[in-house]
Structures are given as C-alpha cells and as structure tokens.
Amino acid sequence: MSDDNNWESMMSEWQSCKIAKVDSTKALEDIKYLETKTRRKATSMKFFMWGDIIGAVIITLVFIYYLLFKDSDLFAKVLFGGSLFIILPMSFLSIWYRKGAWSATGNDTNAYLELALKRSISAIKLAKATALTALLAGIFIVSALLFKTSMEFHELQWPWNRFVFGISFETLLFTSLFLGSKWYEKRKLTEKMKLESMLKDLNSDGLN
C-alpha cells in the first residue's frame, strides 16, 4: 500500500464500485415519510413534557386545596405533599433533558462526538434520577396506601377492593418504571463507553 500506484488503483477501484440502487425520487419519498415519523416522535415527546408540567401543576393545586380547605384530611395532605416532593424535581429534570434535543451532524467528528458524549451523560443522569424517583415514590405511595388500608381494615370487603387494586397498580407501575430506567441507563452506559473510546482514539496522536 506504500506504493502510490497501488493506492491510486485501489482508489479508482473503490470509486467505481457501484452498489447503491436507490434513486433520488424514492429517496425523497423515504425522507418525507421519515421526517413525518420524526416529527410525530418530537410531538409525542413534547406531549409527554407538557404532561409532566400539567401533572405537576394539577397536583400542586390539589395539594394547596387540601392544605387550605380540608383541615381534617391528613392522609391526602401527606400523599399529595409527598408526591409533589418527588414530581417537581422530576419535571424539572425531564424538561432540562428534553430541551437538549439537538441535530448537530453538520459538526466535525470531534465536536460531534463530544456533544454526543455530553448527551449520553445527561441521559444517564436522567435515567438514574428516574430510577431513584420510581423507587422512592413507589415505596412512599405503597406505604401510604398500606397505612390507609390498615386504618380501614375492618370496613373493607376482602379480597377485591380499591386498596388491593391501588397497591397492585402502584407496585407494578413503579417497578416497571424502575426496571425500564435501569435498562435505559445500562444502554446509555454502553453508548457512553463506545463514544469515549472513539473520542479517545480520535484525540490520541495517531501513533498508538
């Protein structure tokens, strides 16, 4: 390969290697379809972000209502106050992360990899925060429901009642959220390691 002629011949062979069978019209159709799909995805992401905000606002209002006008209902105050304690930082984190949506493929590889690495690190932080939130919120809400169940134990119609449903539903919900976040975190950790390795390779002197 040190031979220039050899390299020239390889280059010419490479450039004359025709393997694509797409035509531009088909490509444009594909792109319009993909763009619509991406826009839908972005809309659903926005929808979830606004869902977070609206959910947080509703719970805040309900909490204020119970705090000011329902003196007797201590259980509801604890439940909504606790949820708020978890939901507010979570909403902030989720908005902060989603605002970081980017399209930077026009950058040079070095800048692109650095940005991709930062994004992976943010995603890992969000996944960790989500897992922790799911764990704390799950324990808190299920404990609160168990406490309420124990208070009204004699009045309940076993085994089918709203507490059994509530406890099962919340346990399933928060376990899924916890496991999902852990899976996502693992995926992002692998991605981060690969990006770090590529970046390290790119930033080395090229002699190793």
Partner: peptide, 19 residues
C-alpha cells in the same frame, strides 16, 4: 465535505447506539 461529515457522524452515532 459537508455530506461526508453528516454521513460519517451519523454512522458513528449508529455504531455507538448498537449494542
């Protein structure tokens, strides 16, 4: 240069996401 830059970056992104 621009097209190659976008294509290679996207390919790297693809590789880093692929488990």
């Amino acid at each position: 240069t621009f097209v190659y830059r976008v294509a290679h970056n996207q390919a790297m992104n693809h590789l880093s996401r692929d488990s």
